[in-house]
Design a binder for these strands. Structure first.
Lengths: 262, 262
DNA sequence: ACCTACTGTTCGGTAATAACGAACAAAGCG
DNA sequence: CGCTTTGTTCGTTATTACCGAACAGTAGGT
């Protein structure tokens, strides 16, 4: 583990929605690093365009992060088809749809679509990281990993209770994941947020492994009566995406040269 | 300049649309670094989730890049309003619209919208980096920087000729940028790609500085006859975005807690 | 089922280099 | 104007990233 890289990402992680701009001194204080060290770190990151300098010598996140993120997205096979199916799902069901991938032992929202201006779930957003043990998408993705791996990482992180329904014991989670595998989808019964339920289903890649998960998030009072209906819908959506995921590989053909347009 | 960070970004930059997956040995050969060094680099980046490991011990870009990119986008004031105006513009004009920011001495496309399935400009995409001296958006952004700064950076990079119309001399560019400032917009007369023209206008931030640029890209044969019309359209669009950009700062109010949704 | 050629990772000793505190100039503010 | 705080620079010390070789595991070909 290279310490410079560790520190560099600590710096990058400072930047948030609430605090998108940092000075060297503030950062140094927060990270408890010497000012000179922090200065060199941030200056180097800025040279690489992972940070950008503001007029006043302060720093913001740099656009190379956006570039890298775009090539990540554009080489994620299932994303285009997933988006198509998700739009369809939002239209027919009128509920919020999420797409997430597993990153370590946490899940990351890749996409979020919600019915135009209806009941909005403000809590989530694309790029947000969430606990896997208490979310529908998270449980689906964990269910398709080797348990040993999951257990080890979860021991370090713990299973914080976000609501009274959250599963907080490793054994209980193991049982739950077994059920998820059996029935082919996961439910979140107000385990993350009181009043919010969801169904999530796995998306399989060309090699048959679960690469992502889609979910339908519905207010609790509306969810239970139509549970089966929602379940069927998300399963079908996930199947559609999975089927075209393998084939979608051919849809990135040449992209030819790195010619620049205007 | 910390060498570890320099090497880390060299590694990150390996990943592209054509080559989204790299092994340690391949990377080491390409970067001309010892295999062990490269292994530690990539392994450390993976620990920080800037890379992710595939099943077979190879590497892909990591989802933390997406997270960081999203907070960058979500804290870029003008983006939401820009998108709204751009959609409008595509609808009324039926031509491709770009949004770009300056990053160093190059421009980066932040957004690209094109009329549904019409004549597509395949050359550009969001996240792409392009030479500033030969593109509409690029010239607009350069025009609003201090010339000394621009000149210095351009000397290092040079002014490669992408077509016979490309400005390749620093003096000529200085004159051109002066014209851009005077008339308030920049033209790209097949300077990047033969057959493609565009008009670009600056977006001003709350402090009156040019923070981004929007452009309208049109095939040459269609452009010249309607040049004035397109110019008026892009200027108005840019003005709209600029006006709401200052105010848009208040639209990110609390975002409250980092509660996680499902 | 073999063997070969490759993969990614581990391990120490060594030399390069990142860390650090102090001194610096510049900007912000009272 | 003077006081504080900003970001950057500098030179020395000790940390630490580098490197080659040896490692275990896999894929491919015979």
């Amino acid at each position: 583990m290279l310490r410079t890289i560790e520190k560099a990402t600590q710096v990058l992680d400072l930047f948030s929605l609430e605090r998108p701009e940092w000075g060297v001194s503030e950062a140094a204080r927060t990270l408890k690093l010497p000012k000179s060290t922090t200065s060199e770190l941030m200056s180097s990151l800025a040279n690489q365009r992972l940070l950008s300098r503001t007029a006043k010598g302060r720093y913001r996140l740099g656009w190379r992060l956006f570039e890298l993120s775009q090539t990540l997205l554009d080489t994620t096979e299932f994303r285009i088809e997933a988006r198509r199916v998700m739009e369809q799902l939002v239209k027919t069901r009128g509920e919020t749809v999420h797409l997430a991938v597993l990153d370590g032992v946490q899940a990351v929202y890749v996409e979020k679509l919600q019915p135009t201006p209806a009941v909005k779930i403000k809590i989530s957003r694309a790029g947000a990281r969430l606990f896997a043990h208490c979310s529908g998408v998270g449980k689906v993705l964990l269910a398709h990993c080797e348990w040993e791996y999951v257990a080890e990482l979860l021991e370090d992180q713990g299973l914080p209770a976000l609501t009274s329904n959250t599963i907080t014991e490793l054994d209980a989670l193991a049982d739950e994941l077994e059920r998820v595998r059996e029935r082919g989808c996961a439910y979140d019964d107000e385990e993350t947020l009181v009043g919010l339920c969801c169904v999530a289903a796995p998306i399989y890649g060309s090699k048959g492994n679960a690469v992502a998960s889609v979910s339908l998030s519905v207010p609790a009072y509306r969810f239970h009566s139509k549970k089966d209906e929602y379940t069927a819908a998300i399963l079908e959506a996930a199947r559609h995406i999975s089927e075209s995921a393998g084939a979608k590989l051919q849809e990135y053909p040449s992209y030819e040269m790195e010619v620049q347009g205007t």
